[in-house]
Computed example of a mutant assay.
Amino acid sequence: MPRRSKGLLILLVAAALLLAVAAGQHYRFFEQSWFEFRQWQHASQWKDRSVWLRDYQAAIQGKAIEGIDDDLSALTFNPDRNTLVAVTNANSRWLELSLDGELLREIPMEGFGDPEAIEYVAPGLYVISDERTQQLLLVRIGDETRVIDAAGAQQLSLAIDRNGNKGFEGLAYDSKGQRLFVAKERDPVRIYEIEGFPQTGTGQVLDVKVSEDAERDARLFVRDLSSLHYDEKYDHMLVLSDESRMVVELDKEGHPISQLLLRAGAHGLDDTVPQAEGMTMGPDGTLYLVSEPNLFYTFVRGGKAP
């Protein structure tokens, strides 16, 4: 081979390798591959003292929720009624769903710009996040509620790393520790911890404290955050990533220990979950998940995932 052609070939190979490395870093392939090995290696250590997503299998998958056409976002569990609660962001509706994905009730929401997350915090009380304005609003919803008006809600504005439609995408609540966790979607991925809000009793919000764990967030090998769930049984956090197509379980120190892949062929899924937007877990350990436009999924622990 002529020297000039050989040199060109070397340059092309080097460029291809650089592109492969850049793609691997961008999509976090290297961290994910290493974690998958570590997950298998430490299965015996964590399997009986964690949620252990590795053993979850799809039970209901891709069920279209009748009465909802599009923009299904967020999910939380209501232990008082044994139901699920979601929101839609385009036309702003509060939705109550059965545990098998049937629409039971809907309430219009007024004064909300882009509601992306909802979290049950106490009987009749929910925190709703407005993604673009980075506001958190505490609303009260009862059997008699016909309209949810943001004007009457207890509100907290944070305006942290504000960058348009990449704001507060997920919420989780630790009722024992009185902590609200807020997920920033991306650029950068962050999980903030808030103490002092919401104030579920009488009086005004006092001594609000906002903190973050930079080391934990740096270990998150996902491209974005779509939803959170705090598991009080183990004090572990579940994080949902739409772009990375996975749910990841974090231990008390924020180290990833198990994952559930949302791709076709994994965990009994026939098709890849198209756009996972909300996730929560029931007291029996069932994992509930919703995806745009209007799809409903459940996952139960039982059997080894592929």
Score class of each variant (00 low, 15 high):
E96W: 09
K176I: 01
P108I: 12
S157A: 14
E131M: 07
A153Q: 04
G142R: 07
L138T: 09
G111Y: 09
A172N: 04
N91C: 00
S157R: 14
L180Q: 00
V87N: 11
D114Y: 13
R179P: 02
G113D: 14
D114K: 13
A86T: 11
P79I: 07
R105D: 12
A117V: 08
R105G: 01
I68Q: 01
Q154D: 12
F168Q: 00
E102K: 15
Q155A: 15
W94D: 00
L103W: 06
P108Q: 06
R146S: 13
L99Y: 11
L75T: 07
I107V: 15
L125S: 13
Y173M: 09
P123Y: 08
T145V: 05
A183D: 06
S73G: 02
N89I: 04
V127L: 01
V87L: 15
N163K: 14
E110I: 12
T145Y: 06
F168A: 05
T76W: 07
P108S: 05
A150D: 06
F181A: 10
Q135W: 08
R162Q: 15
V121Y: 01
Q155M: 14
G170R: 04
D100V: 09
G164V: 09
P108T: 08
Q134S: 10
P108E: 12
F77R: 07
L158F: 00
V121D: 04
D80I: 11
Q155D: 12
T76N: 11
G177S: 00
Q134I: 05
Q134N: 07
R162F: 10
G152N: 01
V182N: 10
A122Q: 13
V147N: 03
A159G: 04
A151E: 15
Q135K: 13
D143M: 03
L72P: 03
V121R: 02
T76L: 05
E169F: 06
I128C: 04
T83V: 04
L138G: 12
E131R: 07
R93I: 06
L103T: 13
M109G: 05
